[in-house]
Amino acid sequence: MTAEVFEHPALSSAAAELAELRAAAGRLGVPDPVAALRHLDCAPASIRTSAAAVDTGALAVTSAQAEFRAGVERAENGGSTEAFGTWADTVDGQYAAAARAAAETAALGARIADRLDELATAAAAEVSALASAASAAATAVLAGDRSAEVVSEVSTACTAVVRAVSAKIASLPSLAAELEPLTAPAVELS
């Protein structure tokens, strides 16, 4: 039996702990507890890396804005027209809005990565405990025991794994709602 590989290391570990329960479930035709974990797999480290890159971009925009503002002030002090000053203030505001949007996006990415990490880690711990509790019954099923007690225990454990994962997944819409503002342009360029 090959080890299941998940993006989240805690889920890979949990899948390994569920291997015997999974094999017993297969013999009984009950829900596959490892398959349930797939619905919660995620890569928080990748999300954090992306958020850090966006944050670095926000710093670059802030720096560019400062350089632009300094150039505008030099131009305005040199006798430029009022129209140039108005245009420059608009562009400066766009720089500021872009930098704020990038910083907010980076912070949101970090929050989402942390929340996904918490959910995956909590689910892994919960399903590992369920697998441990049903270990004797799973071993008995694999040895050929089809008594009502062991069959029920394996089936109940598999169903509990599916429910535990489903409960974690149920909290994901709140994360999706946080992403909604990112669907509109951060800055309308003039």
Results as ranks from 00 to 15, higher is better:
155 S>G: 15
57 G>Y: 04
68 F>C: 06
42 C>W: 00
46 S>G: 13
153 E>I: 08
49 T>Y: 02
32 D>T: 12
106 A>W: 03
157 A>C: 14
148 A>K: 05
36 A>T: 12
178 E>P: 01
56 T>E: 14
70 A>I: 06
90 T>F: 02
136 A>W: 03
126 E>D: 14
130 L>K: 05
63 S>Y: 03
95 Y>A: 01
157 A>K: 11
76 E>Q: 13
136 A>H: 10
179 L>M: 12
131 A>G: 15
43 A>G: 08
18 L>T: 13
139 T>Y: 01
190 S>C: 03
124 A>R: 03
142 L>C: 03
14 A>D: 10
132 S>D: 15
95 Y>H: 10
64 A>C: 08
51 A>P: 04
43 A>H: 12
41 D>A: 06
96 A>R: 14
147 S>G: 15
159 T>S: 12
147 S>Y: 09
113 A>C: 14
177 A>E: 14
16 A>I: 04
132 S>A: 12
153 E>Q: 15
59 L>S: 08
47 I>Q: 07
81 T>W: 05
168 K>V: 06
187 V>Y: 10
101 A>E: 03
67 E>M: 10
103 A>M: 04
137 A>C: 13
155 S>C: 05
125 A>Y: 07
4 E>S: 14
47 I>G: 07
70 A>H: 13
139 T>V: 08
174 S>D: 12
177 A>N: 13
69 R>S: 12
117 D>E: 11
85 G>Q: 02
174 S>I: 02
121 T>I: 01
55 D>P: 00
109 G>M: 06
8 H>N: 06
41 D>W: 07
108 L>K: 07
121 T>N: 00
118 E>S: 10
76 E>M: 15
32 D>K: 10
4 E>P: 08
5 V>P: 00
5 V>C: 00
10 A>W: 02
151 V>L: 11
157 A>H: 04
157 A>G: 14
143 A>P: 00
107 A>T: 13
43 A>V: 03
14 A>G: 14
79 G>M: 02
93 G>F: 11
187 V>M: 11
153 E>W: 04
133 A>Q: 14
164 A>P: 11
144 G>Y: 02
60 A>W: 05
71 G>K: 11
101 A>K: 06
74 R>T: 15
174 S>W: 05
189 L>R: 06
91 V>L: 15
175 L>H: 02
100 R>P: 00
127 V>G: 09
123 A>K: 06
20 E>P: 06
141 V>Q: 02
106 A>R: 07
57 G>V: 07
179 L>Y: 06
25 A>E: 04
112 I>V: 15
169 I>A: 08
112 I>N: 04
18 L>Q: 13
83 A>L: 12
99 A>G: 14
85 G>I: 02
41 D>V: 09
28 L>A: 01
30 V>W: 08
121 T>C: 01
58 A>E: 10
60 A>H: 09
30 V>S: 10
46 S>P: 00
145 D>M: 04
7 E>T: 09
152 S>L: 08
112 I>C: 04
38 R>M: 08
106 A>I: 01
38 R>C: 04
11 L>A: 11
136 A>G: 15
185 P>N: 05
190 S>Q: 09
149 E>K: 12
181 P>H: 02
31 P>L: 03
140 A>V: 13
22 R>G: 09
71 G>L: 07
38 R>E: 13
3 A>V: 13
24 A>W: 07
16 A>V: 07
32 D>M: 11
127 V>Y: 05
89 D>H: 08
122 A>K: 06
162 V>I: 13
119 L>V: 11
